[in-house]
Design a binder for these strands. Structure first.
Ligand SMILES: [Zn+2]
Ligand SMILES: [Zn+2]
Ligand SMILES: [Zn+2]
Ligand SMILES: [Zn+2]
Lengths: 163, 163
DNA sequence: CAAAATTTGCAACATTATAACATTTGCAGG
DNA sequence: CCTGCAAATGTTATAATGTTGCAAATTTTG
């Protein structure tokens, strides 16, 4: 698996998309899961940028390209993609983003730029360890961690809207 | 400020409520903010348990006690309480919970029991430090942290629904 | 091919949150 | 007191997000 580009900087994003789709196909094949056309298309739409996409944005884009779908179609595709770890849900934004570590067991940290909207997904072991230690100290059994950090990405610092 | 009771174990919860309301009054007085009857009542309703409360639950309870309010009334009260750090929003649940550290500058970690719904708010320095270090390593400027851990609280472990 | 299971279509509905504008309330200056 | 402003609340409507239930189509299995 090749190194991923940093989302903030200009890069050949088509590579990100292709890689994500290829990985998804492989992951689904290994688990006998059916990456149907709709599911694959939704995944591709989510990967169209490094900004999270809302369910109704997906719905609108599907509609614009002729496939007039209803909400359940989109939510079911999203459920599938979540289940197989191909996307993540960003709770603080009610939106979805492609997983940058699909296939790898990981706990994610999301750095969300409030200015440009780009999200960087990290899997930092020290953070996970600190969180799990804190939970353990309270005898709490961790199942799922939602860690979303809002702020300014490197590109947007200094670009304070005084223009 | 006295030590707080652990929410999982039986305790005189009225003490939690009284303390929260007293603290809120003091905090608002210091900042020349008006803790109006509606705002205070919403805060009290949120503190009625250690489980997060949805905006429409609040709305229903206000209605049940004669004050037939509309959504904006509740959301405005919630905005006020959020602004002055008297409550927190739990993004993963679309619900609100009383702040256990009102008046203290802190970064919160929420331990959310999926079984009983009780939420424990922690302010653990090692976690905060690890997160800030991870963000700094990416040159990301942190403004807000959402950290919500879902799992089983001590009381609910073992109570696996085979009854 | 036929039965079973999964996936999709579709209509209605539920929940959460906000916009826009009118009215009331609290408070300061005259 | 009362007048005028700003903050807070009331009211109505609507937007945004997410779910239920059932029917039709598709895929898998035997
Ligand atoms: Zn890219
Ligand atoms: Zn940015
Ligand atoms: Zn209590
Ligand atoms: Zn519990």
């Amino acid at each position: 698996m090749s190194e991923r580009a940093l989302p903030y900087r200009p890069h050949n994003h088509q590579t990100c998309v292709s890689q994500a789709l290829t990985d998804a196909q492989e992951i689904c094949r290994q688990q006998n899961a059916r990456l149907t056309p709709i599911r694959e298309r939704v995944l591709e739409l989510i990967w169209q940028s490094h900004k999270p996409l809302g369910a109704y944005d997906i719905l609108a884009q599907l509609g614009a390209e002729g496939h007039k779908a209803a909400p359940p179609t989109v939510y079911r595709a999203l459920d599938f993609l979540l289940q197989y770890g191909l996307i993540h849900r960003i709770s603080s934004l009610n939106a979805f983003i492609g997983c940058a570590h699909a296939g790898e067991h990981h706990r994610s940290t999301f750095l969300i730029c409030r200015e440009c909207g780009i999200v960087l997904e990290l899997a930092v072991d020290t953070v996970t360890k600190a969180i799990e230690a804190a939970a353990k100290a309270e005898a709490f059994q961790v199942e799922d961690i939602t860690l979303e950090i809002s702020g300014l990405c490197p590109s947007c610092q200094g670009n304070t809207g005084h223009a």
